[in-house]
Design a protein around this nucleic acid. Structure first.
Lengths: 250, 250
DNA sequence: AACCAGTGTCTCTCATATAGAAACAGAAGG
DNA sequence: CCTTCTGTTTCTATATGAGAGACACTGGTT
């Protein structure tokens, strides 16, 4: 069905991460328990195409600038900078809290962009980080609009308890998602990170499929429940503006 | 020597560009004059790993967010944002012109970062764009510090006349590079883009190999020759600052 | 309604490209 | 000078991919 050679190659590539962006041939072969000849051929081929570069000093292989180039194309395709970023900045100014743009990728959410609030507080989520779709407002509002079979796939894959607030009971989660969908937006408290609240609205493709979400996140202590409704209204207003331009490109 | 399957796969991937970021299976097969079965298997395998995604609407394949993720790792590895960007901003403020960070990748220069001058003028170079190493100050200062065999490889590969000022005579180019190396920085006028001058200084790895360059670019009409020496001094000063921190990571 | 020309996907078989062990060349350290 | 790493190359049996062709589906045209 699929190409085993390419499959192996991409599996090998997966080991070049943030935490370990440089690998020696035998070092990587040892970790994967395969012949170093295989690893060598894969790395050498990637290098020929500029996807990996061999550090002249250490002899180890590292990710090449080519990946960054392809990343630029992807980012451009999403039109984030032009369309959504201004709306995020407006929201950050209005709410004085941080705004997150989360995108659906596979069965996970990925943080594409953050506009920090003036009040500096660190969040556990950073640009590029992946999070499961069942925890936190930014993710749940996406999951709520997924087709049922995909929702079940996520649930069957297992629900991890990130905090004491994470919903790990499948039935409770299903009812919660239904409510989110009925309401059109999502409010959550400390489901993915302790003491962080989130208010999120969905963003759709032109065909009406879920594409991502726009989220206001704030530390729980400075966000009274009385403000939730007001902020959700602001969010929905800006999301509608963004949505019309998204319709033409997605 | 190399893996033909992976080689083909990456060759197929090369067709996903800025200009055409979405391809249908048969469409791409036709362009490459190969069986659509082959293309399908390659695209499907890339998709399984998140490097490509199939657009549900058009059925076409597009570059996946995974590339952007890997791009983040690469960008982080280069430490541009933390180390060099502040120096670029300082230089932009001091000179009131645009500052370019160019990096060596293969036998080309790639523009990693730009800090625009307050005086808005458009340049032909944008973030992510690749340029040959023999044209323009930002590139020539890199080429000047390459080992002779690589210089010759570039020259043998052919010199294209971007403007009337582009040096396309191999002997003239060789002498020019030698002079640049002796001087330690490079000044050029309209070699890659008409009516644009550039003043560039090299950046090195810890081992003393050329890594990239820092460039001041300006429209010719507002940049008197008398200012060249002054600006080159400013550039060299900031480059020295950046260099010390680069030594520890490259 | 029937047809045609598209599409992405899947199946099959033969030719071949790859896996994996083992050898090689070079560097670093004791 | 031996040991022990490293990345690289060679070799052959065999698992794997190339490529043609069929399939199921869609959208437009007659």
């Amino acid at each position: 069905m699929t190409l085993k050679t390419l499959d192996n190659a991409l599996e090998i590539l997966k080991n070049f991460t943030y935490a370990q962006p440089a690998w020696g041939v035998r070092e990587l072969a040892k970790k994967l328990n395969i012949s170093h000849s295989i690893v060598y051929r894969v790395l050498a081929t990637f290098e020929e195409h500029g996807f990996l570069v061999q550090n002249e000093e250490t002899q180890k292989y590292e990710l090449g600038i080519k990946f960054w180039e392809y990343g630029l194309i992807v980012k451009d395709k999403l039109k984030i900078s032009d369309l959504i970023f201004p709306a995020m900045e407006t929201l950050a100014a209005e709410t004085e809290e941080s705004i997150f743009l989360t995108w659906l990728d596979g069965l996970e959410g990925i943080c594409l962009e953050i506009v920090e609030s003036s009040q500096k507080v660190k969040f556990a989520v950073s640009i590029g980080s992946r999070t499961p779709l069942y925890a936190g407002a930014s993710n749940k509002v996406i999951m709520a609009y997924l087709p049922p079979d995909k929702q079940e796939e996520i649930i069957q894959h297992g629900l991890q308890e990130y905090t004491t607030q994470t919903i790990i009971n499948p039935d409770v989660l299903r009812r919660n998602l239904e409510e989110v969908r009925r309401q059109g937006w999502c409010y959550s408290v400390g489901e993915y990170s302790e003491e962080v609240i989130g208010i999120a609205v969905p963003l759709f493709t032109g065909k009406g499929h879920i594409a991502g979400s726009l989220t206001v996140a704030a530390p729980e202590y400075r966000f009274p429940k009385s403000k939730v409704k007001e902020v959700s209204d602001q969010l929905r207003l800006r999301a509608r503006e963004v949505q019309s331009s998204l319709n033409t490109i997605l």
